[in-house]
Structure formats: C-alpha cells, structure tokens
Amino acid sequence: MTNRSRLTGIWYVLPALAFVIAFTAWPFLQMVWISLNDWSLITPPDFVGFQNYLDAFADSQFWVSLSFTLKYTLYITPILMIGGYLVSLLVTPNSGLSRLTRTVVFTPVVIGLGASSLLWYWLFSPNYGLVNKFLMDLGIIDSPVLWLGVDANLSNWAVILSITWKVLGFGMILFVAAIQAIPQEITEATMVDGAGFWQRVRKVILPLTRRTILLVTLVSVIGSLLAFDQFYIMTAGQPRNLTATSTFYVYLNSFPYLKLGYGAALSMILALIILGFTVVQMILTRRSER
C-alpha cells in the first residue's frame, strides 16, 4: 500500500474517528475522572481516588438495585425472545392478515418509552385504570389490585407486561426478516422430505436464524440492564426501593442527590458488567459461526 493510499484511507476514517472521540471516548474519560472525585456540581470537585468505588461495594442499596436489574433482565429476556419468535413464525407469510398483524404488533415500538410507560401507569391505576375495571367487570377480582409500588414482584410483572407490549414487535420484525431470508429451496426440500412445521422450525429455521436470535438477545439484555424510564415513571423504585434499577440508582445519586462522583463510579461498574455480558454474547456468536 502506498503512502498516498494510506493517507486516503485515514481521511475516510477520520470523520467516524472524530465522532467516536468526541462523543464516546472523551465523555467516557471524563466520567472516569468524575468517578474519582467527590463532586456535587455546586461545590468544587474533591479528588478522593477510588473511595467512590469502595463506597459502592459497601452500599447495600447498590446491590439490591443490581440484583433487581438482573432479575428483571432474566425474566423479560426469554419472554421477549420466545414471544417475539413465536409471533414471527405466525406472521412470516406475506398474507394480508400477517401484514396487518405485523403492523399492529410493531406499532408500539415506535412509541416513546416514556409515553408508553405513562400510558401503562394510568392503565394500572387502582382508581382510574382500565386494567382493574376490566378485571372487576369480568368478575375476576373483587377490589382493585394495587399493581404498582406496593408489591415488588407484582410491580415487576406489571412493568414486564408493559415492556412486552412495547418491545415485542422489535424482535418480531427482525425474526420475520431473518426467516424470510432463508432460501425457499431449503424449506421446500424439507417439505418434500416430509418434515412437519415444528420439525422445520427446530431443524431449519432456528439454526438458520441463530445470528439474529443472538443479536436480538444482546440488544434485549443490554436494554434491560439499562432499564430506567419504565421504572422511573411507573414505580419510582417503590416499594422500599425494591424496584429501583441500577440505572435509576445512578440517576438518583448523580442528579437529585447531587453526588455526581458517586453516580459516575456506579456507572462505571454498570458499564463493566454490561461489557462482560457483551463479551459473552460475542463469544457465543463467533462459536455459532464456526
């Protein structure tokens, strides 16, 4: 490669590189620096070394939040994956009904997460919510259920329901695209061989859409580990901080409590955990390609 062509390559890469440096690398370095300081924004920063990290490990609420976040991720990821995949199997054929179903299931994806959380917050309202009214009219319950902010498990499931409604279509549409990309000859060959629908799903469709499954899993896991809006709006961490996710706890410390250094340290720890998950996912993806 000549010097001239090398230089040309650098020029092509430079805009992307500048973007990454300005909007990812530099803020990340700043966050590292902030995490080493005790800083409230309204007073000058005070360098404290790794004290914020030591405080985080001794902070019981941090572990409660992390444990709840992992629990939420563990619950919602299979629901989104299996649910999205099953729906995609139903709506893959390009019939009118399938297209309509795809549109209906995908529509919530384009609604902002804040708006959808607010919508579900009011749907679950004990006095004004349609969910309770519906269940009472059907005679399933006698008195309003306190979905949010009273019982941690119930609150978690209420949020999971709202997010499933909101996000299921995202996985579905990717799965539909992946399934539709399977060469028709393969499907027809398995049909000629006498394979039933579920056999085709198990032996052909699932293996050939593995990369998409891993991609959607990765997106879903990272999104769930960073869950904020839905809990901020629907439960505010209640009851007794048991539904305060890690990101919610980071926000709480960084801004309302004005402990920016501590919040940055919590962010760093969370980033490392997510990095760990991502590395595992990447290893799995590479293995699947062999």
Partner: peptide
C-alpha cells in the same frame, strides 16, 4: 420522544 423529555415533559410516578 426524547426531544420532549428534558425540561418540560411529564412523567407519572
């Protein structure tokens, strides 16, 4: 969605 999520949006809980 985010364009309104700064200073003037409303959230519930």
């Amino acid at each position: 969605a985010d364009s309104g999520a700064g200073d003037t949006t409303t959230s519930a809980a």
